[in-house]
Simulated scan of single mutants.
Amino acid sequence: MREQYRTTELSAADLAPEPIAQFTRWFKETAENPAIHEPNAMIVSTATPGGRPSSRTVLLKHYDRAGFVFFTNYDSRKGTELAANPYASLLFPWHPLARQIIVTGRAERVGRDETVAYFRTRPHGSQLGAWASRQSSVIASRAELLARYEELAARYPEGTQVPVPPEWGGVRVVPDAVEFWQGHENRLHDRLRYVREDGQDDQGDVTWRVERLAP
């Protein structure tokens, strides 16, 4: 199976001065495209200290110049791997647009206040689900999971405040490189990568250089 991508060229001159501004451009276009389901879905890859990788899809909940934020159970596989090896890769696979964005960087936990503020915006059922699921642990059956949820629903009915699980919170990936990939015919794709440089500019902002990669 093979598809010929027919898209416009992506040149360095087209890029924003820094990667978050460029991400915002592409994310806005993606969010407006009806062919893209959940444009904030991204594949998060982590690895053990011994180099064994694992990947899963999560939802991006916030981004700014400080990095890209998602929320998880810190006792999950990705949570424990990041605690032991705090480096991650994020992949946004926007296939209908023949575009991808790849972020690599260091992961850090967000402040508890930020976690609580986000948790309060979640639907009531999702708040209960954060308690019900001991993420990545082995369970005997789905019935066990549903029974735990129903117990929590009785304890915290709709309209009551659900406390934030102590092991649940946000992770921010602070990028050291962000690659923008645009597919083209004959597999001659555009790959432009921002790489964080040491030091800051006159305004104290991070400086970036742009590299073109062979496809």
Rank of each mutant, 00 (worst) to 15 (best):
V58R: 06
T115Y: 07
L82V: 06
D113R: 11
V116S: 12
T115I: 09
R99D: 00
G111A: 15
V116D: 14
L91P: 00
R99H: 08
R56H: 12
Y118Q: 10
G67K: 02
S141P: 12
R77L: 14
R52K: 14
Y74V: 02
R56Q: 13
Q135Y: 10
K78N: 10
Y87Q: 12
Q100R: 07
A41C: 13
H124M: 11
R112K: 13
R109S: 09
R77Q: 15
A107Q: 02
P96L: 07
A41Y: 03
P39M: 11
Q127E: 05
I139F: 10
A41V: 10
I102D: 02
F70V: 03
Q100H: 08
S133F: 06
A84P: 08
S55R: 09
L128Q: 02
P93W: 03
L90M: 15
K61G: 01
G125K: 01
S137R: 14
E108K: 12
H124C: 07
G51N: 11
E114D: 14
P96G: 06
G111W: 05
L82T: 00
R122F: 01
A132H: 03
S137D: 13
T115G: 11
D64T: 05
H62D: 07
N40V: 07
F68M: 03
H95V: 14
K78C: 05
A98N: 10
S76W: 05
G111R: 13
K78E: 09
R120S: 10
D75S: 10
T115H: 08
Q100M: 09
A83G: 14
L82K: 00
P86F: 11
A47Q: 03
T115P: 05
P86V: 11
G125W: 01
R134Q: 12
L91T: 06
Y74A: 01
S126Y: 00
H95T: 13
V103E: 02
A130Q: 01
V138L: 13
A98P: 00
M42K: 04
R106E: 13
R112L: 12
V69H: 01
I139A: 02
A41E: 07
F71C: 03
Y87H: 13
T80I: 10
A88T: 02
T46M: 02
G50R: 13
T48D: 11
Y63C: 02
T48M: 11
W94S: 00
G67Q: 01
Q127H: 01
E38D: 15
L91S: 06
V138D: 10
Q127F: 02
E81G: 06
A84L: 13
L90R: 01
S136F: 04
R52M: 13
S55W: 06
D64Q: 07
P49G: 07
L60G: 01
G111Y: 08
P49V: 10
L82H: 03
N40A: 14
A47D: 08
S141Y: 09
G125Q: 08
Q135W: 08
S136D: 06
D75R: 07
G129V: 02
A143D: 15
E81A: 05
